[in-house]
Design a protein around this nucleic acid. Sequence first.
DNA 1: ATAAGTCTGTTGTAATTCCAACGAAAAGAG
DNA 2: CTCTTTTCGTTGGAATTACAACAGACTTAT
Lengths: 219, 219
Amino acid sequence: MKKYFELLKTVSLFKGIEESNLQPLLSCLSAKTVCYEKGQTVLLGGESTKLFGIVLSGQVQIVQYDYYGNRSILASIDPGNLFAESFACAEIKKLPVNVIATTESEILFIDCRRLAVPCTKACGFHSKLIQNMLNIVSMKNIYLTQKIEFTSKRTTREKLLAYLSAEAQKAGTNRFDIPFNRQELADYLSVERSAMSAELSKLRDDGVLNFHKNQFKLL
Amino acid sequence: MKKYFELLKTVSLFKGIEESNLQPLLSCLSAKTVCYEKGQTVLLGGESTKLFGIVLSGQVQIVQYDYYGNRSILASIDPGNLFAESFACAEIKKLPVNVIATTESEILFIDCRRLAVPCTKACGFHSKLIQNMLNIVSMKNIYLTQKIEFTSKRTTREKLLAYLSAEAQKAGTNRFDIPFNRQELADYLSVERSAMSAELSKLRDDGVLNFHKNQFKLL
DNA sequence: ATAAGTCTGTTGTAATTCCAACGAAAAGAG
DNA sequence: CTCTTTTCGTTGGAATTACAACAGACTTAT
């Protein structure tokens, strides 16, 4: 386990917690490490889980099967990242997804009920842990809400303007860089890349904005 | 304050907590009640907040102004419901929204940092409170993620099938009721009501599903 | 029972988006 | 520098959606 402490220090859930406290913390949480072979199921859809995972090595994928059996990959989780924390914390009865190891992997499991109960040793980092977890889930929440605000607009033009004006507000100026290339932006907004490119040009011609590569300027 | 205990018992954050424990809980959390007149600002966009609110009486609205000053109402919060909990827990520096009282209102404010720190009196309901909060934020998370899965599909047909097959899976059968009328479903999926109605008919003609009012059956 | 209002499905036209293809510019590799 | 790959903007035709308008079924109020 010790060999993963360097990794664990970078995990958002443990932010602000001393490396020397990691060992007692993990035993306090009854954290357990499990190894999986390539292709093995980590969490099975339809079942419930009180545990969430942290990938120590390898990779897992969150996959979903629809009514007709079509598979879609919702996310790939690399070392240092959490998965299934929302399902565990929300006490979901039936997982709507499967979690599969895409390579040989080592997973650290934590029972989310252990997060909330104060440990008998009254470890000081426990409250930090709870704050971190609330932080992680809330941030994701805000991120998702904002994405919905953009994508629920009807036209490509409106989606672009909603996104770009939010970026401008976030940056505090009308001139700002975006963290996407065109294809990524199109995927994020759920529109066609080429149609989006055309719409950007039209917005420029209409005098609404200017752009050069990833730098935009609202007028 | 006591007159609101009936209401507080129904608040999701206090689920599973005895009414007799509410008073000590609120003082432990340093909860504060503030009154607002109609039209007053409860939380100002651009500032930060460590506090989240619970509406005791009246109503508040979450409103957003875009780059061009256009106002949009994101939500209306009625008595018994929380607001700004994600922003508070995520420790957002600049609120991207304003919260306005639409009528004369009474708001109970709680500092989310108080949630995580164990109180000196070691009150037993504190861990329940944390679990409830994690629960609330995580559930919202799952709800938002699912909505994005539906709306990010490109065509009305795909959106409908994604939504309906998820409902079928949730219900455990291929015959189920949906909690929306047509207009609400169209709004939820970000599509046109009439186009959606037409697509539903086409899906029926194609032998993919059957429906009568709010009851659907996938074939 | 009548009348008013709401919900739903249908249709035709206009507008928008999707898709495939292509060329130019920029970035990277050898 | 040259060649290759990636990224981006443009275009035209096919497909899809938006919009407006309307009719029938159903609900509610009087």
